[in-house]
Design a protein around this nucleic acid. Structure first.
Lengths: 193, 193, 193, 193
DNA sequence: AATGAATGAGGATTCATTCAT
DNA sequence: GATGAATGAATCCTCATTCAT
């Protein structure tokens, strides 16, 4: 019997290393060797498990999106009222796991990748649809027909705060960002009165 | 006899070609040869005029920022009241010259470049500062101490709408985007009442 | 409990898989992994049994030559007269086992391998010597001193028909090929009259 | 004005180097770097002019076929009678330029390449058709309906002599090979009487 | 002013081979 | 007996950049 069960370990390590490297480089101009070295394996092994470089990137993207989805689910677990649920969704975007240097940088780069990579675009579209649907679900009871516009605006605002966070040198301030989105949300609700 | 005065023409053509190519590729993964070919010159000439590839990119970035600055200036020319001036600044971001496929794509890519290129970051910072100062100047009379927060939020919203526009396949709808930012602005003003 | 006696089975499977893969690829550019996969084992096992890739190829070559030798022996079993024996030798080259897509393709590739691999060359030389000696043995009584020339020509003709068969897309027509060689043979005999 | 007109020179040198290297290696397992080094240029330049490795090989193949076609044309120039023309065609195959170590080795390898490369197959098909048509044109007056069979056999014989020449260590004996084909031809003619 | 020629450096990818289990 | 794990070495190919003309 050979050494068994390394595959999931290596894959996870490589995905983690990919996000770290993208964060460090601030771009997708990262070599497979750099990723592999950081993961402590040879570049050949990275290819062995992922096939091609793009697959590594996509796996990293999927990893981030999965983490985000889990954060949203967790946040929604205890929330019932629309306003509370919206706050949960918004806060999830700016929480620990998601809103830190490397991950935010990776996000921004995935946005770029989505412009020329169909699979990347598909993944991003899934995220966008889910966010939109989450927001709409609880905006409707509060805003009625204005919910659609509001969802678009809030989603754009979240993305905008991400992009700006990516430019900051230090780890971004998630609490402040969440506060801003919530303020915009409350403005919308208030304006409807 | 040598052709005189070609330099500005060539430079402009190369800058234009750079933006076009970035738009086409959806990333900065564009070769000097591709840019040169599109500009109708040899890649050697591109180097002759710009020195290195990064300089070409920076020139393109500068070109876009200059165009944006001009649009803002033009918009502000006829506006006096704070609300009118804010609308002018916001509309400038989503007007013809700025808010079209290639240019938006270039923008997004420059955001990425700013993460690892100091000169690019500097250029982007200039833009951000100017936008912030423009917004603040007219938000203060309307919102007082809440102006800072409002400026941050509006700026992020503008960026967010750009990023989302970059993902759309067709030329983005500038009017709709501007409307959203203005709605957010009016919500802020209304909430302050 | 360890399976006993697997070795010959695995070796045979790998040899068979090698010939099939060479036929499929139309060249020796076949990886050990491909061969192993087709044989239903790991590439490590292929190395375990054969040591190195070249050994696998040589074993495949030996397998083909052995099969050919057996076909010749079988053909000669019932033949007595020189002309009949020659026909048997010639037909053996174009019979079922030898003259089919994969095998012919492998043959051609072994000719190439013989140009840079000494062991391959040695194997091929054995085949050539044996064919030559077979032909000569029965050409001498019929053609006397012209037998040497005739043997060379017939051997070359056989090889030439193989090479041309290798290029055809479908399984080659062994009967037609044999007929051509026999016609050439009869022309030689006839010319001697 | 840059240094001009190097392209055809480099291309020719690379084609020549390719044939030499294939001859030396006895296979197509030749790296672009080896070819380039022998041609006295960088491997990058080889790619610059030919794009990809396969194109270099195809150019070499084309070069050989062109040389062969020229030799045939030259041989046919002075020949009128069918038998004389056939002799010219046959001799052309075994003359200086065509029938020497490297070139013959390259030939054999091109036969292999034709098994998996469509463009290579196409080139080889052109050669085969031309040879067949050349032979048929002059065999018909001599052999009538038997001309087709004869052409096939002669073509196969020529190929067979090539393949065997490729295995010999020294430069092959073209005169002897030609003599053999001519003898086969005369046997055919004689048998028809 | 402009470009064809040329290359060094670097990166993705493949693969035979080894090894521990 | 058998294999998953792992890698070093190679190879194709790309590209920014330089230079002579």
């Amino acid at each position: 019997m050979p050494k068994l069960g390394m595959e999931p370990i290596r894959r996870a390590a490589l995905v983690k290393a990919t996000i770290d490297e993208i964060g460090r480089a601030g771009s997708l101009d990262v070599t497979v060797s750099q990723i592999a070295r950081r993961a402590g394996v040879s570049s050949a092994l990275a290819h062995h498990y992922f096939g091609a470089k793009e697959q590594i990137f996509l796996a990293a993207m999927r990893h981030i999106l999965t983490g985000y989805a889990a954060a949203v689910r967790a946040g929604l677990a205890g929330a019932r009222a629309p306003r509370a649920r919206l706050e949960a969704v918004i806060r999830a975007s700016f929480q620990g796991g998601q809103f830190q240097g490397d991950v935010v940088s990776a996000w921004l780069n995935f946005y770029v990748a989505a412009q020329h990579s169909s699979p990347a675009r598909r993944l991003l579209t899934v995220y966008q649809k889910r966010l939109r649907s989450n927001l709409l679900h609880d905006l409707r009871p509060l805003l009625g027909v204005r919910a659609d516009e509001a969802a678009e605006t809030l989603a754009a605002l979240i993305d905008g705060l991400y992009i700006r966070a990516a430019l900051g040198r230090d780890d971004p301030d998630g609490a402040a960002s969440a506060r801003r989105v919530l303020a915009a949300l409350d403005n919308m609700i208030g304006a409807g009165a």
